[in-house]
Design a protein around this nucleic acid. Structure first.
Lengths: 197, 197
DNA sequence: TGGTATATTCAACGTATGTTGAATAGTTCT
DNA sequence: AGAACTATTCAACATACGTTGAATATACCA
């Protein structure tokens, strides 16, 4: 029952934190349908709130998106720092760090991917960051030939896996434990990091 | 100069094939901005044509999308058939078939991914097909433990690579030759197909 | 030559969307 | 108690979109 609220400030006690409700609904819907595919009105509806309350709190739709994507830590930086420790066992460290960072924030990852891919803005912040931070630091730590292509492939392995786990949510990947994934996938990633000689 | 056309059927000779122009513009824009991010008016503008001509030829916007995605062959079927030949050297066969099928149709692949991911329809035809055909036939041909998860991982390797090559277009992957990719990536994929014992 | 079909534009419609401004009710500060 | 602030809804807006129907000019067929 969407409790019919009256105009004006509600008495303290109903304080059911509409702001948080809006953020929650937004996160879910952005993750499920992307930025463009989600309307403010449908977010408002799910949050049980008038549309204009969103504007009041977050300015406009992009403001809401930004608020939605606030993360406790910046996963890309953690990953970049893990790369710096050299190529030995890098695949496992990469996987554990990546999954450790994103598993608690699947919806945000999904939003980012859907938003980034859904609106072909190749200047999108996530793409820039991924390119500059992830690939650049990978290139720096790899040995041998074709470092750029191999760095891109390693990124594609991480992103592809995350795509299936967080966005498409294939059950067998979405429900696997971190240890399982490391066990099954780390050797294959490591083979791109340090090709057998 | 967008030649100002007059109302009524143009004299034969200007026969610059507006239908094909519409399809071209649509393919490019769907590939670049996804289905939702592309408006019929902007397609019409790029094709140098009135909006309603699109409806005339393709019925409605989804009709245009469908027309845009017509492929000479069905790549998923080719891949599924290649899987059937058993796990030995499967990675290389998969990569060559996949790239052979999609390299000539990057824009279509990009459209599909952007459209599929941009509008979180988890019933989207491409997803269903990928799940049922690709993963199912992979599961059938793998040996050992964790077949489902490994099949999902192999798919994620293919999709992730294609994402970077066709959609994001990282230069080092987008410009690499098929042989390069096979050389750099096939061993890593094969290690998921047949884990070292 | 006449009639029908086709290619094309024009004009308008209905709808959904993001946004804005005002109204109202409660809280907090002085 | 009064003023200032905050939370909330309501009503309206301009805009962009997909779609439709009519108008017009040419091509094709008998």
């Amino acid at each position: 029952m969407t409790t019919k609220r009256t105009r004006g400030r509600p008495p303290a006690g109903d304080a059911a934190d509409r702001r948080a409700a809006i953020l929650d609904a937004a996160r879910t819907q952005f993750a499920a349908q992307g930025f463009g595919g989600t309307s403010m009105r449908s977010i408002a509806r799910e949050a049980g709130v008038d549309v204009s309350l969103i504007s009041h709190y977050f300015g406009d739709k992009s403001g809401l998106l930004v608020a939605t994507m606030q993360l406790p830590v910046n996963p890309l930086e953690k990953i970049a720092s893990v790369v710096k420790d050299g190529p030995d066992g890098l695949a496992e460290r990469l996987l554990r760090t990546f999954l450790g960072s994103w598993d608690p924030h699947r919806d945000i990852f999904s939003s980012m991917v859907r938003t980034t891919l859904g609106s072909g803005d190749s200047q999108a912040p996530m793409l820039q960051l991924a390119r500059n931070i992830l690939i650049t630091s990978l290139v720096a730590v790899l040995d041998g030939d074709d470092r750029e292509a191999r760095a891109s492939l390693i990124s594609s392995q991480l992103i592809g896996m995350a795509l299936m786990r967080y966005v498409v949510r294939l059950p067998d990947l979405a429900d696997a434990s971190v240890d399982d994934i490391v066990r099954l996938y780390a050797p294959a990633m490591q083979l791109v990091v340090t090709p057998s000689t």
